[in-house]
Design a protein around this nucleic acid. Structure first.
Lengths: 207, 207
DNA sequence: TAACATAGAATGAGCGTTCGATCTAGAATA
DNA sequence: TATTCTAGATCGAACGCTCATTCTATGTTA
């Protein structure tokens, strides 16, 4: 069969994708400022620079926009842990990346959205499913990474023990999202160093 | 002047207080299930067993209900840290209490409300003020406690170093709220033990 | 011209809040 | 004690508004 014209499709497709992204960017801003339920389609459309009705040409409904925002946010988390797993000297990589990761977590604007997502996951099954699948993937990646580090140091941990250490590591990180909202004045760099120490200790815990 | 009748006042007052508490309990349930903005006065009033309009005899508006719920939730946190500070052998008290504290944090229902509160604090100045004042008090208490423990172990920390350790401790704890939502299948008891180890290490970190 | 992009009005539901009407229980009075 | 008075408790309808979503009409472009 003949190849159908690629150019118009591409421009149409990219145009539509750009429009979609435009909506998502506006939605992310609104969700950060007003929460998922406080943000109205009217407000999102105003910031996205289009009519409210037109948004429904790109998303089935508001829930779909929320889903896309959640998936987009978790995507970055997935690539981060995947990168970590690929690093060669894994222990140093983990601890050095930790400092960057901590500073990211301590950015109040992005923290607000991340916390909003978990709050929504606690009551919205659709969001919960997305969040939990991404989290399971991250945990699997981190388990491999941590098991490798500890094996190299002579520990032979059970899967359960590794899973628990992953939970503590995750708790340490994710807690920062709440800390930066509860105490916006904390010293980000110094806290990052302390977290590095804590991770170091965690990796040397008895099995 | 003569003492005015105490009995009717008491019953009236306690009746009103009971009614208020009834509303707050219903509101807490609704907020947990639907979030601050997803929960309507109509729904709260139905669960509280009274008409929607009647709620406005006890609270000025919905914002006031949110404020009361937030204050009530943070109250328990304040008494917990105050208790901790009063314990005699502080290090053991801290670490033993930690296990209980961890299990509390890992209760999904109460975690949902606590996360909702922080999410709201990120965008609602009134809630932010309540949350941050309570947090500052907790941090002060924890700083005294941790400084005492570390002094006894021969460390002479700067206030900044102590503050940073408090942040890490708080992050570890509060992160559990997010963990139990993201991964409801985690093993609560084993994670509690791991957290105890991590706190132990934290208290021995170099100054 | 055909197909799609876009706007903006329309819709119906639900929201927070107000308000006037009742109900009720205890105080005052006879 | 019996009756009236009264102030607060309570209800439910009503208000004005905003919401998510749909629909129709009008550009726009290939």
């Amino acid at each position: 069969m003949p190849i159908t014209d690629p150019t118009p499709h591409n421009t149409e497709a990219s145009r539509a994708a750009a429009r979609r992204q435009q909506i998502l960017a506006a939605a992310a801003q609104c969700f950060r400022e007003h929460g998922f339920h406080g943000a109205s389609i009217a407000r999102i459309s105003k910031i996205a620079g289009m009519s409210a009705g037109h948004i429904y040409h790109y998303f089935e409904n508001k829930e779909a926009i929320i889903g896309a925002i959640v998936a987009q946010d978790l995507e970055t988390l997935l690539t981060l842990t995947a990168e970590l797993r690929a690093a060669c000297n894994v222990r140093n990589a983990l601890i050095e990346r930790a400092a960057e990761g901590v500073l990211d977590q301590l950015d109040p604007a992005s923290a607000a959205l991340k916390v909003e997502i978990v709050a929504e996951a606690a009551r919205n099954p659709h969001v919960a499913r997305i969040v939990r699948e991404a989290d399971a993937t991250c945990r699997r990646e981190l388990m491999v990474t941590i098991h490798a580090i500890r094996s190299a140091a002579g520990h032979d941990d059970t899967p359960a023990a590794t899973a628990d250490m992953v939970e503590v590591l995750a708790s340490l990180f994710e807690g920062l999202l709440l800390r930066t909202i509860r105490n916006p004045d904390l010293d980000r760099r110094r806290v990052a160093q302390r977290i590095q120490l804590a991770i170091n200790d965690l990796l040397d815990q008895p099995g």
